[in-house]
């Protein structure tokens, strides 16, 4: 029963991933012979492996800047998404006004807008003749900076795209906290902030970890948002990977970047697994 989906993934993704890893280590045979016959500036060995391709690209100053840009944007986006989705989810949990419902509806809108369109909409919104500039102009800020084609725009775009998931996950988590627990705390005189701090927060740790890790993984590997809204350089690793493929004809270097992103994503994924195992073990002790 498990076989069909596992086989599909193994054949169409797993196998290419293994081939890609072999290629970055200098092995150009078998499935890699096509790419090896196309690329330039390659580091190939017949026997064993070589890390020259890694050395080549990781000593590239542009890549350093792209890497830092990627890391910073990832951190900022993750923090903002966690904070905003906590706020929205908390508001939803504690009130049941039409306003709360409207906000919840609005905050999942991006989930249903294709990313290409989302990026384009965001670019136009923050462009030199976009809404923000226009409003700033009418409010008297004539020299308001243009955000289109900057890392700020990329950050805003990534936040926009990731908020629905955060809100969904956080509300799910908070809905899991039973009402009578909160009511009991309130009845015994706890203030609302205290209820949040000592009941809701500790019981919503796992969803928070999930939102943080998966937002981070998504931003690391994203292409469309930074490609459409970002600056020429430095930009996130996604677009620079495409550059190495298309414009510079250096597929091996592009693959190395892909693996760098992959490893970073796995690292973050490990945090998530660790958090799960840890809480899982603790609950095991309790019961």
């Amino acid at each position: 029963m498990v076989l069909p989906p596992v086989a599909v993934i193994a054949v169409f993704i797993g196998f290419p991933v293994v081939a890609a890893i072999a290629y970055t280590l200098g092995r150009a045979g078998g499935p890699n012979s096509v790419v090896a016959s196309l690329g330039q500036r390659q580091f190939i060995v017949q026997k064993g492996v070589t890390f020259d391709a890694y050395r080549d690209i990781l000593s590239n100053p542009t890549i350093h800047r792209d890497l830092w840009a990627t890391v910073w944007v990832t951190i900022v986006v993750t923090l903002v998404v966690v904070a905003v989705s906590w706020a929205i989810a908390l508001y939803l949990r504690l009130t049941d006004s039409w306003l709360a419902r409207t906000i919840s509806a609005l905050s999942v809108v991006p989930l249903f807008i294709p990313v290409v369109i989302a990026s384009y909409a965001i670019l136009v919104f923050y462009a030199s003749d976009g809404f923000i500039k226009t409003v700033a102009y009418h409010l008297g800020f004539h020299g308001f900076p243009t955000l289109g084609y900057t890392l700020t725009c990329v950050t805003l775009g990534e936040i926009w795209v990731n908020i629905p998931f955060g809100v969904l996950m956080m509300s799910s988590g908070l809905n899991g906290v039973p009402n009578n627990l909160i009511e009991a705390a309130r009845d015994s005189g706890a203030t609302m902030p205290r209820v949040v701090r000592s009941i809701l927060l500790p019981m919503n740790v796992i969803p928070t970890v999930i939102v943080a890790t998966f937002t981070a993984i998504y931003v690391l590997g994203s292409f469309t948002v930074p490609y459409l809204t970002g600056p020429t350089a430095p930009n996130l690793l996604g677009p620079s990977m495409a550059n190495f493929f298309n414009s510079f004809n250096q597929p091996q270097q592009a693959e190395v970047l892909a693996i760098v992103v992959f490893v970073l994503a796995l690292g973050i994924g490990a945090v998530y697994v660790w958090a799960n195992v840890r809480t899982g073990r603790r609950s095991g002790l309790q019961s």
Binding site: Q40, T232, S247, F248, Q250
Partner: peptide, 17 residues
């Protein structure tokens, strides 16, 4: 020639912006 152009674009990206 093509390959030279690829290198040129890569180095521009590296050194100019």
């Amino acid at each position: 020639a093509q390959k030279q152009q690829s290198d040129f674009k890569a180095q521009w990206q590296q050194t100019v912006p």
